[in-house]
Amino acid sequence: MNTFIRALAVSASLALLGGTSAQALTVYSSVDEENSTVILKAFTDATGVAVDMVFLSSGPALSRIEAEKNNPQADVWFGAPSENHILARERELTQAYVSANADGLTDQFKDADGYWHAIYTNPLAFGVRTDILAERGAPVPTSWADLSDPAYKGLIQMPSPQSSGTAYAVILTLREIMGEDAAFDYMKTLNPNIQTYTQSGTAPSGALSVGETPLAIQFTPGFLKLKDEGFPVEVVFASEGVGYEVAAMSILAGTQNLDDAKTLVDWMTSAAGQQAMIDAKTYFLPVRADVNAGEGVSSLDQINLVSYDPAYASENRQRLVDRWTDDVLGQ
């Protein structure tokens, strides 16, 4: 697929020969390879800007950008959590440009000075098999409080905090909403309703698809995919609030291709760009409230997003996971 983008880049630059700068936009992408390929292809189709993509996961991407600081080899860093882009700004690796469409993004999806903008977000959600719940006569839960209802005894799958960052995000979310002690008390009362704590953060949606569980907790993409494939799945965002992850992009300092880089940022933050991302079946949630992830899925202005401090999260991980295994698993 990467070679496909390259071929596209070559043909596009040939078409532009004799015109202005014929150099392709070089993108270090930390969005998974399959999805970044389809998103950037949609970008090239829409704007005619050729893209040369190098796939690097977030850690290696950051160290590579830092190593190339004095002679930048790329123009845009595309993807990776927003925390990493804040770090890149602090290390003066990126430059400010306020997107022409920045007004469409709420504050948590952009840097106030324009150093980074969000590409997409994945909030935590409940995936609900409405057919199974209807058969049992159980209501569709709408809040964290609903989930601890004894009517859902043994009916919920969520990942284990011992192995999954997704489950850790659940702990952090509940801690923000309720305070730490109350959050652990809540998880203790929730425990009888949990069928199994899965090892992987994406396993619950798999169990949802085969009907092994009617209720699953994880980040949205797995649920949006099932919904798109025609499963009777409803995606519920807890009314008290849900944690979320944000993938962002920044323009690298010293880029030789500033105009095309700006075009990418403008396009990605536009309604058209966000819609193209949905149409490409990435199953990411758009960061603009005026673009919808699919029929029957809440748009951003209807979701109560809960933020937590990433520095606190990484410093307290062992402690909170240990407390979870002692209080909840070992009770």
Partner: peptide
Amino acid sequence: TVQILNQVGSGRL
């Protein structure tokens, strides 16, 4: 076997 574990983990039974 490791592939199978990964597939089970991603729900691709």
